[in-house]
Write a protein that binds this DNA or RNA. Structure first.
Lengths: 308, 308
DNA sequence: GGAAAGCATAGGACGATCCTAGGGTTCCTG
DNA sequence: CAGGAACCCTAGGATCGTCCTATGCTTTCC
C-alpha cells in the first residue's frame, strides 16, 4: 500500500542521494528509511534506486516519480492549509439559519458584520420556510438558527431567547388605528398572516387563537402568505389587516404600504427572538460567531432579554 | 499523522453520508472507518462530520476539505500511472522488428542506446525473414518495425520513410567496377541476392526486374540467400556479384570480402528505410522510443528523408 | 413500542514501523 | 595495500497502528 510516508522518504532520499542523509533529515534511523523506500519499490513493482556500494543512485523511474511525489505532498499541504484557514475563519462557508422576520432585523447587517471581520468567508443564511429550518436543525444540517418563537420548549432542541419585540396591528384604514386593538376587534378583523415564526408554535397565531377563543369565535385568518413583505403589501392594498412585530412594521410599511399605519394590541403581546440549536450539541466556532453577531444585531433593535 | 487512508475514508463517508456505507464501499468494518475519520479530525483539529443519530452530516470544513482530498488522491493515482508507464521500459521487454540491411545500420548501436537509457530492459530485435516480420506486424505481435522498403503503400500498414540509401554494385572483379553499372551490364551479371527488404516489393529486385525487362532478358539471379553477410561473402569468393545499399557495402566488404569493391548504378537507385506499423494503432511508449532511436541511428548513416 | 439502522466503545489479533546492533562493500587515504 | 570511513543491508525486538468482532446506545420507522 502506497503511503505518504513512503513518498516523503523517497523524496528525501532522492534529494540527498543517500538513505543515511535522508534519515537524518527526517529524524529516523537509516534502516527505517531504507525499509520505507523498499516498501515503495515493492508496492510499485519497480526499482527506484540502484544501490551502488556508497550511496544510492536514482533510476529513471525515480526521475519520473519525483515530480508526482512532490505534487502529492504539495496537495496534502494545501489541504491541510485550507482546513486550517477555515478553522480560523479566513475562508470557507458559514451556514446559519434565520427564519421569518428575524431576517428583517439582522439579515444584511449580520452578513456585513461577518464579512467585515472575515473578508474571505462565504456566508449562507438559510431559511425559506420554518419547517425546512426545523428539519435542517433536527437532521443536523444546520448547527443553529435565529428564529422568532413563542414557547421555549421543543424535543431535542434548545431555545435560548435573546430579545422580544412588541406585536402591532397594522392596517391601511386609519379608523382602525385610533386605539389599541382588543381581542374582540382582532376577532372581527379580516387578517393576512405570514409564516414568520417557529413551526406551529407561532406566537402571533397562538395569541390570536387565545383571543378568538375568548370571544368564542373560530380563527378568521383570511389570507396565508409565506413572507412578511407580501403580507404588508396586501395590508397596503387594503385587502386585509395583519399583526406583525413592531420593528418589521416600522421597516416595511413606509416602503411597501405607505398608506398604512400601526397600533398596539391590548393587552400588549410580544414575539420572542431566540437562538435555536440541537440540545447537547457542541457548537462550532463559526456557529458561535454567528450567534453572537446575530444577537447583537437583534438586540440593537428589539428589547434585549437576559440570556440564560 | 495525516494519511491517504484517512482521506479515502473521509471521501467515502462524505459521499455516502454514512460511515457504514463508506465501510461497505471500502471493504472494511464500520468501526475501522469511524476510527480513521476520527483520527483525521484529531490530526486536523476540526470536526468534519456532525454525528446526528442516524448517519453523519458533513460540516463546512468537510466541504472545504473534500476537493483537496480528491486532488491528493488524484495526484497519487497519476504518480502510480506515471511509474507504471515507465516501468514497461525498465523491466519489460522491448520488441522491435528490424529486417534485412536495416539491422546493419542500427542493430547493435540501437540496442546500446536503449540499454544506456534503460539498463534493466530486455531488448528483442526480431526479423529473420521478411514474411515473418510481415506476419508479426499484421497479427499485432509486433508494434512497429524498421525496414528497407520500395513502395510506400500496403494494406492496413502505414509506412513512414525516414532515410534513403544508394544501391551499389559490388564485385570481387575490379574490371567490373571501373564505371557505373548500367541496366545492360546488370542483366549480364551473375548475381547473388539477399532478401533485404519488405516482402515482394523488394526495391532492389524491382529495380533489377525493370532493368532486365528493358534488355529483354529473364531474371538472372544466380544465388538466393537470406542475409546480406552471406551474399557479401559469396561476392568476396568471386562466385557472384550483388547489389546492396552503400552503407552495407562499406561496412561488410572490408570485413567479409576484402578483395571486393563497389560502384554506383546508372541511373542511380535508392533503397528507402522506413518505419512500419499497423495503420491506426496507438504506439506504446516503448515502441515510440525504439522508433526514435532507430531513426536517429539510421539517419546518422543514410540520407535523412523528411518524415511526413 | 418494537425492529431496524447507524455510530461509539472495548478488547484482542495482526501487521507495520522504528529502533539498536552488527555485517558487508566500496572508496579514500596514508 | 591495509585501514578506516561512508554507506547500505539484515536481524531481532519493542511499540504503535490498523482492523476485526461483539456490544451498547440513540434515532428512526412501522
Amino acid at each position: 500500500m502506497l503511503s505518504l510516508h513512503q513518498l516523503r522518504c523517497f523524496l528525501a532520499t532522492y534529494e540527498h542521494g543517500s538513505l543515511t542523509a535522508a534519515a537524518d533529515e527526517l529524524g529516523y534511523a537509516q534502516p527505517s528509511v531504507s525499509e520505507q523506500v523498499r516498501a515503495l519499490e515493492t508496492s510499485l513493482g519497480v526499482q527506484l534506486f540502484r544501490r551502488v556500494g556508497r550511496g544510492v543512485v536514482p533510476t529513471t523511474v525515480a526521475d519520473t516519480l519525483r515530480p508526482h511525489a512532490e505534487k502529492v505532498l504539495a496537495a496534502v499541504e494545501e489541504a491541510r492549509e485550507a482546513v486550517q484557514s477555515v478553522k480560523a475563519f479566513e475562508t470557507g462557508t458559514i451556514r446559519f439559519g434565520m427564519f421569518g422576520v428575524a431576517r428583517l432585523y439582522a439579515g444584511a447587517g449580520l452578513i456585513a458584520d461577518v464579512l467585515g471581520r472575515y473578508p474571505g468567508v462565504r456566508v449562507e443564511l438559510v431559511g425559506q420556510n420554518s419547517t425546512e429550518v426545523a428539519e435542517d436543525l433536527r437532521r443536523g444540517r444546520l448547527e443553529a438558527a435565529m428564529l422568532a418563537v413563542s414557547g421555549v420548549e421543543s424535543e431535542g432542541i434548545t431555545i435560548t431567547p435573546v430579545a422580544r419585540e412588541e406585536l402591532v396591528y397594522i392596517s391601511a384604514d386609519p379608523t382602525r388605528l385610533t386605539s389599541p386593538v382588543t381581542a374582540r376587534r382582532l376577532a372581527e378583523a379580516s387578517l393576512v398572516m405570514p409564516e414568520t415564526t417557529w413551526r406551529a408554535e407561532d406566537s402571533t397565531r397562538i395569541l390570536l387563537r387565545q383571543m378568538l377563543h375568548e370571544t368564542g369565535r373560530n380563527p378568521q385568518t383570511r389570507i396565508e402568505v409565506e413572507d412578511v413583505e407580501t403580507a404588508v403589501e396586501l395590508v397596503g392594498l387594503g385587502l386585509a389587516d395583519s399583526v406583525i412585530p413592531r420593528g418589521a412594521a416600522e421597516q416595511l410599511i413606509p416602503r411597501l404600504a405607505p398608506g398604512a399605519g400601526w397600533v398596539s394590541l391590548r393587552p400588549r403581546q410580544w414575539d420572542t427572538f431566540a437562538i435555536v440549536h440541537r440540545t447537547g450539541a457542541v457548537l462550532s466556532p463559526a456557529a458561535r460567531l454567528m450567534i453572537e453577531l446575530a444577537t447583537a444585531r437583534i438586540q440593537e433593535i428589539a428589547e434585549p432579554l437576559a440570556r440564560s
